[in-house]
Design a protein around this nucleic acid. Structure first.
Lengths: 340, 340
DNA sequence: ACGATCTAGTAAAACGTTTTACCTTAAAGC
DNA sequence: GCTTTAAGGTAAAACGTTTTACTAGATCGT
């Protein structure tokens, strides 16, 4: 029962009296009009029979390709990113790729550390949600080191790169409009202090929308590190107390909304009577909340598909042509529930 | 700016006029009383200077080790598993290991497929939450193929293996007791139809507890595939309608509780007046629910630590001794909130 | 009939390590 | 003064592939 030794091409070669080269050609489908049908069948049958699988380390060493993609997420334990990860997983596996995940925690240093770890590890491509201030590293990775990199969830203006993102600006406009349509006239935006595109675009969308309706802007931007902490909740609390006239809130992320909802609940404010609420990103807590919270849901399935398929496509056409960037912005879906 | 060629040992060897062997020894810390301090320093400095990192494919090919661990979770997008994954990630990286994640969906066929995919890919260890009916495969993997495997979240009785699990039996007893202590006398158990240890042990804990208090058993076991579906919710609904005397429910998993809470909310039942609620596994939805739901929280951090540290330990001591199994059962933490 | 072309296949180098077995020189032991 | 031993180091094989360059024989066109 104990299989001690893995079978290799050499073994097959010896057993069948066929050269290793021939076997390699057959395995890699390069046998077309080189090798006779009979030999191909013989080898394929034998391979099937003994369950031979090529040694991937040897393949990697020889070809320089590892069939590995790194997904550097902001936080892989965040439901949004882990849902994306799971969808990608399957497609990647089906294409012979494996994915390695890691979390940057939105820290530049952490991201750099991880990047260095992987740069030397024969990785074929990076799918990455870069933290703030990572432009130079990213630029170098793409243009200096010539790596395949797909940027996710955010994008930069200074240089061309592949990306898959949400239509954040439009999403924020739609969300603001829906609060307005529910009769809210003092609509606040609670976001994160950051220049990253999803955050800044959402703020922009909110602002333009507010302006259009001639409303006053109320915006609170809290620090990324404080989102889930007491400090962040206090920020929100003080903000609401300072502007008691606020009657609607657009939260820029799900975690922000969760902190916000805790504050609102503690203060005994009524949703939607006192405050209309809408948040970016859907999570089951929003549906189960009393009352259920409206959201701009990200199309997780579609995002994941675009991400991984785009990356695989880039991998196939590498070295890439200047004009062949993969850039997608997908629409969010407004789901109106009872919170406005 | 464009670095075209990776630096290799051969390059260092040429540049420094030192043999590849010596360099290898130094890199692998086998230079102790073989190589002089000066040479060691010279090589280390040079490596530092040019930022050389060994080619991992070549290392894998030569050593047969890939420094890769597969974490085959039930569902990597489940908050519990993704939280575990994230914790493990860091520790693994710090020890020079990378982790590849995948999800079995609790399907035997899917797990088998994944296993076959990885068996031929030079993986050093498996951390796995086996689906039902996977005992034989697991046994073969451990004893037949001599792989390092750590079983997570569940364990089997028929054969010895490494595992890290929760103390499910005691957790269920504690949970039932806390419902009893809140004055509930018709306590139901809503679980999953499965022979996997966490599910069966939780049911057992509930049963023994009920017996101790001389209460009547009310248990509903629904199919894994139905948990998040309409069908599952209907099962719960009918169950509650059939036994209107039920005044407390212990949910065996978080997803079950979420489905249950949707039903309870729809039916307009009051928590905790009509129904006391407690669930296994904590999630932020439980804290934010109205009223907040009591839980038996799993010690995620500790579980992850045990898992990865245990696995690394096994990896170090392989080939393993018969008596050196790594087996841990950790206590859950009862968090009483307003739902009982 | 003879070189050209095609068919079916192979030998051997290369990828970048690790590791075994060996070598040289100098000091130590007696 | 001769043999051992230690210190410091190296050559070369091996891991299992992919790929380039080659070959032997058959077929073909003229």
């Amino acid at each position: 029962m104990k299989k001690n030794k893995k079978i290799s091409m050499k073994d097959i070669s010896k057993e069948l009296g066929i050269s290793i080269t021939t076997i390699s050609f057959i395995i890699n489908n390069k046998a077309e009009n080189k090798i006779s049908k009979e030999v191909i069948k013989k080898v394929k049958d034998y391979i099937e029979k003994v369950g031979y699988k090529p040694n991937s380390s040897a393949q990697s060493l020889r070809t320089g390709k590892s069939k590995t993609i790194v997904f550097m997420a902001e936080d892989i334990s965040d439901p949004f990113f882990s849902a994306i990860a799971k969808e990608m997983e399957t497609i990647a596996f089906n294409n012979g790729y494996k994915i390695i995940y890691c979390s940057t925690e939105n820290k530049k240093e952490r991201a750099l550390e991880l990047l260095n770890l992987f740069k030397d590890r024969q990785v074929d491509a990076f799918i990455i949600t870069p933290p703030e201030g990572f432009e130079d590293e990213l630029k170098n990775l793409i243009y200096g080191e010539n790596q395949v990199v797909m940027v996710f969830d955010r994008h930069f203006d200074g240089f061309k790169h592949n990306y898959v993102v949400l239509e954040n600006y439009n999403g924020a406009r739609e969300a603001t409009k829906s609060l307005y349509d529910s009769g809210k006239r003092n609509i606040a935006f609670i976001g994160i202090k950051s220049v990253l595109s999803p955050l800044s675009n959402r703020l922009e969308g909110y602002r333009d929308s507010i302006k259009k309706y001639n409303l006053k802007e109320y915006s609170l931007l809290i620090l990324f590190d404080n989102i889930k902490t007491e400090k962040g909740r206090d920020d929100i609390k003080f903000f609401l107390e300072k502007h008691p006239e606020i009657d609607g809130i657009l939260f820029a992320t799900n975690n922000l909304a969760i902190s916000g909802l805790r504050v609102i609940k503690n203060k005994g404010l009524l949703i939607p009577e006192d405050l209309g609420i809408i948040s970016f990103d859907d999570r089951d807590v929003f549906e189960l909340f009393t009352p259920p919270i409206s959201v701009i849901a990200q199309p997780v399935q579609e995002l994941a598909e675009q991400l991984i398929k785009g990356t695989l496509k880039l991998l196939k056409t590498k070295p890439f042509k200047e004009d062949a960037f993969y850039q997608k912005a997908l629409k969010g879906k407004l789901i109106i529930r009872k919170s406005q």
